[in-house]
Design a protein around this nucleic acid. Structure first.
Lengths: 231, 231
DNA sequence: CGTATTGTTGAGCGTAGTCAAAGTTAGTGG
DNA sequence: CCACTAACTTTGACTACGCTCAACAATACG
């Protein structure tokens, strides 16, 4: 299970064994539990087993900026290991099952098995790159572009993680959360999503979304076509 | 010199020695040279000896989002080590002196000396946290807030790095660059900066800025007072 | 079945964008 | 040292995208 981290690097059997021998703790968390708080010293990192989570920061005026959404299989709170206090809040979108792994033994085996260290480093790099992508999204695209881009990113990541296999997938965040992720108001998010529906780009049902027009969506969202066409 | 990385972690003499024994290469780079390009596989990371640099990404429509500014002493391109291709472009603001250090030996001694690994990890965490701070800035603050925040951040970092020691410091970026960093137009940046001057919050002379009113500036920029009052 | 959360509408406003031109500064070479 | 050029800053008029506020509808949930 923990071994799905192997995506980032070729791990041999001894490395898998070391990972599986790590101490851990299972946790069931609810929507208003915190996985981590800003300013905490993090002692654990967290592997999402089921459900969704998101990281956010608060501004002085109460505004909230969501920094990332996390799906099943993501490894959260990696950046905590270095005694720096944590820089953002981490909460589940809804109920979540998670594996808490203390940092110290993880760092120990990372030092012992360079491939594991490399995989963790790559994991951190990817999440850093994603953050840069979001900054580009919020800073330089208009409302429609931001939402299309976010949709494409979620589709791509869910497909890569093998969670979905088609043009429809879970889209469990509220429009207010989408707004806080894209730097828009929930009202404006609503209007944009409505237009996407009206123009036949997507169809939404409850907490899922069905992409009807990949081409336009990825063009408006300024995404490399990549895996998406598959559908 | 390389040992100023020791800021992040307590390094013993043998660790210092290992760092100083690293192979490196000196480089003088101009404004339109690239330190790194998006999509490259990075083989080196880069320690800035003098001058300023910035990282940015381009959107499909040609818009540019600046992800970070870097000052003397910063370590750039750390995230490259993991075979992932680089996710952003890295250029000097003006002429720059830099030390290029190949990743492989750096990773080797990081594996050998856990304290060095920890320091590098911390360095990466801090730059990641800064990126999150920027996303919050661009996503949730108005134009004045964004610029004040950026000023405060630059002041704080230059002070921490011991580069400036007072209320005035270098501010070498053009208004267009400030715009691309804050998600605003250069025209609008210009108007905001003019108001800051008119209201007596700052004074600018050439490529420097003098902060006249820390209190208002950090309040508008939503910054923890922290080191700033010193002036 | 009632309550809280989320989604949807409309009208009016304001911040920031656009375009285009003129004014300044800095850098370069004669 | 001056002339010339390119880069950067400043200005004004006009536009528009997205925000605000407020009320109502539709879900989800206990």
């Amino acid at each position: 299970m923990v071994a799905r981290l192997s995506r980032r690097s070729a791990l041999g059997p001894s490395e898998r064994e070391a990972l599986l021998a790590l101490p851990y703790q299972m946790a069931n968390l609810d929507r208003d539990d915190f996985i981590a708080r800003e300013g905490d010293e993090m002692t654990h990192c967290c592997l999402l087993l089921s459900g969704y989570a998101y990281a956010y920061k608060l501004a002085g005026n109460g505004a909230r900026q969501i920094l990332s959404f996390h799906i099943r299989g993501d490894l959260l709170g990696l950046h905590g290991g270095a005694a720096e206090p944590n820089s953002c809040n981490l909460q589940p979108l809804a109920s979540v099952k998670a594996l808490l792994v203390p940092h110290k033994p993880l760092l120990d085996i990372a030092a012992q098995y360079p491939e594991i260290g490399r995989a963790l480093w790559a994991e951190a790099s990817v999440s850093n790159a994603l953050l840069g992508e979001w900054l580009l999204n919020v800073g330089q695209r208009d409302a429609r572009g931001r939402i299309c881009h976010l949709l494409c990113e979620l589709a791509r990541r869910q497909a890569e993680a093998g969670i979905c296999s088609g043009p429809d997938f879970e889209w469990p965040m509220t429009q207010e959360q989408l707004g806080d992720a894209t730097g828009l108001t929930s009202v404006h998010v609503n209007r944009v999503v409505q237009r996407l529906r009206a123009e036949g780009w997507v169809r939404t049902t409850g907490r899922r979304v069905l992409i009807c027009d990949w081409h336009r969506l990825s063009e408006a969202g300024d995404c490399a076509p990549g895996l998406l066409q598959a559908a």
